[in-house]
Design a protein around this nucleic acid. Structure first.
Ligand SMILES: [Zn+2]
Ligand SMILES: [Zn+2]
Ligand SMILES: [Zn+2]
Ligand SMILES: [Zn+2]
Lengths: 146, 146
DNA sequence: GTATTAATAGAAATGGTTTCTATTTATATT
DNA sequence: AATATAAATAGAAACCATTTCTATTAATAC
C-alpha cells in the first residue's frame, strides 16, 4: 500500500505498464469501492484501447499482492478499493454510497490464536466486513438502500 | 435453526411443501457445506421432477429466514450449511473437505458497538469467516488445497 | 370444497467473469 | 543501442452459475 507504485509493482514481479499504473491511479483517486467495469470506463478516458479482461486481470493480481483490497459485497459482484492504511484491519462499507471506513480495532489476532488452539486447523484467509449505511447516507434518506 | 421444520417454515410464512422439507433434510444430514447444484442432485434421488431454480429460490429464502447459513467462499460460488447452533456465531470452513466448525467466541457485539459509536453508521449485516484447512485435512495432505 | 395465493418445472435468458490467441510491450542482456 | 525473453494486452468468444419467465400445480385459509 505504498505510494511509490513502481517499486511496489517490482516487488511483486509485475511489469510496470502504463495501464497497470493507471488502474492504480484510478483506485487511489476514488474514495469508494469500484467494480472492474467502472475502473475500465475510467481508463477508457485515458486510453483509446483497453480491454476489460486486462482490468479484471490486473485488479486480481494487485489484490493478490495486497496492493488493493477486495470488497465482499452482498450482491456477490467484484469490487476493489485502494486502502492507504498499511496495517492489518477491516472495513465498514456503505451499501448505498460505497464509502469505505476502516475498522482499526481488529480482534482477529485473538480469534486466530483460538482457532489454532481449539480447532487445530490452518488459517488460510479470513473475512471480516461490516456492511451498512454510513453516517452521511443515514442523514440523507434515513436508511433506505438497494 | 429448530428441528421442527414445519413450525419454522410457518413462522416465516413459507408454505410447507415436500420439496422445501426435503431440501432442509438434505442439508441437515450433511456435515459439509453444499452448492445449490449438489443439493439439487440429491433431491433428484427422491423426486422425479425437481427444478434447479426451485432449489436456488428455497435456499435463498431459508437463508434469509436464518434457517440455514450461507458460506462466503473465496471462489464466489454459493454454498449453504445447516447449522444447529442457535446462538450468534461464525464459522471456520475447510477449503478442502468443506467441513464447517463453529467459532463460538464472537467479539462482534463489541465491534458493532464501536462501529456505531465511532462511525455513526447503521450496521445492516456483517461477515466474519475464517477460511482454512481443518485438522483432518492438514494430517491428510499436509495442507495443499485447491 | 372452494378460493386464494404461493410454489413449482422447465426452458430460456442473463451478464459478470474468464479463456483464448495473436500481437505488442517491458525488461534484461549484450 | 540492438536483441532476446517473457510478460502483458486487445478483442472476440466462451463460459456457466444464477436468474427470469410463464404456464401449471399445490398448499392453505375459509
Ligand atoms: Zn454511505
Ligand atoms: Zn483482521
Ligand atoms: Zn478439511
Ligand atoms: Zn458475529
Amino acid at each position: 500500500m505504498l505510494r511509490d507504485f513502481q517499486s511496489v509493482l517490482k516487488k511483486l514481479h509485475l511489469k510496470v505498464t502504463p495501464k497497470r499504473l493507471a488502474i492504480l491511479e484510478v483506485l487511489k483517486n476514488e474514495s469508494v469501492y469500484l467494480s472492474p467495469e467502472e475502473v475500465w470506463r475510467k481508463l477508457r478516458k485515458q486510453f483509446s484501447q483497453v480491454g476489460l479482461p486486462t482490468v479484471y486481470r490486473n485488479l486480481e493480481e494487485l489484490a493478490q499482492g495486497n496492493v488493493i483490497s477486495k470488497v465482499t459485497h452482498p450482491n456477490r459482484q467484484l469490487y476493489y478499493y485502494f486502502c492507504l492504511n498499511p496495517s492489518h484491519h477491516h472495513h465498514f462499507i456503505c451499501l448505498s454510497c460505497r464509502t469505505v471506513e476502516d475498522i482499526d480495532f481488529c480482534m482477529f489476532r485473538e480469534l486466530e490464536k483460538r482457532v489454532k488452539q481449539e480447532l487445530k486447523g490452518r488459517v488460510v484467509s479470513h473475512i471480516l466486513q461490516v456492511n451498512g449505511l454510513c453516517k452521511k447516507c443515514l442523514k440523507k434518506d434515513g436508511g433506505s438502500h438497494a
